[in-house]
């Protein structure tokens, strides 16, 4: 039987910013239906990886490939990657003053829908409003949220919910959640995680980036990877996250330092 193309794969990725190498050879394969967690101490390169996947223009790729449905996406601008079905929930979403959530979301949803499902699949204003209302309810957000300016004056929790709201509307096939748990209290974490779990389905995959194990009690990964110094030092099942929580990153560092060097 011919080997199937994985949904998402990273091959020997070396990347950095302003000449400083941060990712020093990352390899990762993710299939549809899988949830992977990427853990690691601060500065290990987790967020850099998220940005490189999404196509942030300030990051330089020195070597390697990122394959999405078998296609190397590294040369594509971020908007094309999004229109192919990739999504990044930002750790620090940017505020855009004067632009309402509703206006932004409709333009985003329709540009993605047209690219993925065909020109005639754009939503009418009415269809869009209905969809938006449904997703707002799912995430326990007020309807008035849609008329606020994008991320402007949002609390930490509101920002994270807004990111998941966008994910819900854009229906990605591969989503990266970058520290979605940071800045959330326990109730907000539960709501956001519930939302993610409801959005998840066997045709898509998730990469959950987190410093703490906490969110993984709600969004349960089958695979856990630990990043150290720009490389994945160790991979395992959910038990790895628990061990990490118990013993701390120093344990990984002492144990897997050779693997990461």
């Amino acid at each position: 039987m011919a080997e199937q193309t994985p949904l998402f794969a990273i091959e020997n990725l070396r990347a950095g910013i302003e000449g400083k190498e941060i990712l020093r050879g990352v390899n990762l394969v993710i299939e549809r239906g899988e949830i992977h967690a990427l853990m690691g101490p601060n500065g290990s390169g987790k967020s850099t990886l998220a940005y490189v996947i999404a196509g942030h223009p300030n990051y330089e790729v020195y070597e390697g490939r990122i394959l999405y449905k078998g296609e190397n996406i590294l040369e594509l601008p971020p908007d094309e990657r999004a229109r192919m079905g990739l999504f990044l929930a930002f750790q620090y979403p940017t505020a855009i003053p004067g632009v309402t959530m509703a206006n932004f979301l409709r333009l985003a949803v329709n540009s993605v829908r047209k690219a993925r499902y065909g020109e005639d699949k754009a939503l009418s204003p009415r269809e869009f409003r209905r969809l938006l209302r449904e997703k707002l309810q799912m995430l326990r957000m007020e309807e008035s949220f849609a008329s606020r300016y994008l991320n402007e004056g949002f609390s930490g929790g509101e920002k994270k919910r807004a990111e998941i709201l966008q994910m819900a509307l854009l229906e990605p096939e591969f989503a990266v959640l970058d520290e979605t748990d940071s800045g959330l209290d326990i109730d907000a974490l539960r709501t956001v995680s519930d939302g993610v779990n409801r959005l998840f389905n066997p045709t898509m995959a998730l990469l959950v980036i987190t410093h703490y194990q906490r969110i993984l009690n709600y969004i349960r990964p089958q695979f856990v990877h630990v990043m150290l110094d720009g490389k994945i030092a160790v991979s395992g099942g959910p038990e790895l996250a628990e061990e990490l929580e118990e013993k701390g990153y120093d344990w990984v560092k002492s144990r897997f330092a050779e693997a990461a060097s």
Partner: peptide
Amino acid sequence: QLFYLQSRGLSEAEAMSMIVNGFIE
């Protein structure tokens, strides 16, 4: 700001327009 909007599927020109429209809102 441009990167954020582009990461949601807006072209660079659309993102730029949106930021400008927000500015004069």
